[in-house]
């Protein structure tokens, strides 16, 4: 990015470097949301539907992990993916894939914990009907996740918000490499360290606008969906 440009100028002039950064941010955070949803939703549903010894402990831990510090996650993934680490041979450190892994770990507890609550509420409502229809455990989870889908969108948005906003994990495992692993948040951190606070703040507003746009799109989807599904 040219040194003297303001964030607004970058947006208006369609600066390709800025758009590559925006694209990567969305790609990494949305992929992490998809991965975390694939793990967190079924897990949350499973905890919601089952009763086992230590369940209260699992719920407390799950809720606590919502506050997982991104730096800690980043460091753990870094040590895992480093060439000297157990998964070093995969060569994933300093790639977008590593960033997706870190953000997935970061937001899976959020999605699991929030969806557990949502699905448990729906389960209390549905349990008799599903039992009467002789629906098995896998079918129950699928049904509850599907029927709670509009509430779960909010859960996924919470995960997306967290992923899109965090810098601690992606900067460690991605390395903030120009044109390759630089996201909105790591670019903001970089511009701040270069003392270009107006540009950093401007990029912050661009990030905010993107997050608002994603939320608006999801909200619209939810509204339209609820119209038809009741």
């Amino acid at each position: 990015m040219p040194d003297q440009a303001s964030a607004l100028q970058l947006v208006l002039s369609g600066d390709p470097a800025l758009f590559a950064i925006v694209r990567l941010s969305l790609l990494v955070s949305l992929s992490a949301v998809v991965c975390a949803a694939l793990i967190g939703l079924p897990f949350g549903a499973l905890v919601a539907l089952t009763r086992f010894p230590g369940r209260a402990g699992v719920i407390v831990v799950l809720n606590a992990l919502m506050g997982l510090p991104p730096v800690v996650v980043g460091l753990a993934v870094y040590l895992l993916l480093s060439r000297s680490g157990p998964l070093g041979s995969w060569g994933l450190l300093f790639t977008p894939a590593a960033m997706i892994v870190a953000q997935t770990i970061l937001i899976t507890p959020i999605i699991a914990a929030l969806s557990r609550q949502t699905i448990e509420d729906l389960w209390l409502e549905y349990r008799d009907e599903l039992a009467a229809m002789n629906v098995g455990p896998a079918g129950r989870i699928a049904t509850l996740v599907y029927d709670a889908r509009f509430s779960l969108i909010t859960t996924l948005l919470a995960g997306f918000g967290r992923a899109a906003a965090e810098v601690g994990a992606v900067i460690i495992v991605g390395g903030n490499i120009d044109g390759f692993t630089r996201t909105m948040t790591t670019a903001i951190a970089l511009e701040t360290s270069k003392g270009d606070l107006p540009l950093a703040l401007g990029l912050g507003f661009v990030l905010l606008a993107i997050v608002v746009a994603v939320n608006a799109a999801a909200w619209g989807m939810k509204r339209v969906g609820e119209q038809y599904a009741g």
Binding site: L27, S31, V34, L38, T95, P96, A97, I100, F180
Partner: peptide, 15 residues
């Protein structure tokens, strides 16, 4: 979704 992720994670390897 899995396909999209596979594609995404594969591209840096190519690059």
């Amino acid at each position: 979704a899995i396909g999209a992720i596979a594609l995404l994670t594969a591209s840096p390897a190519l690059a």
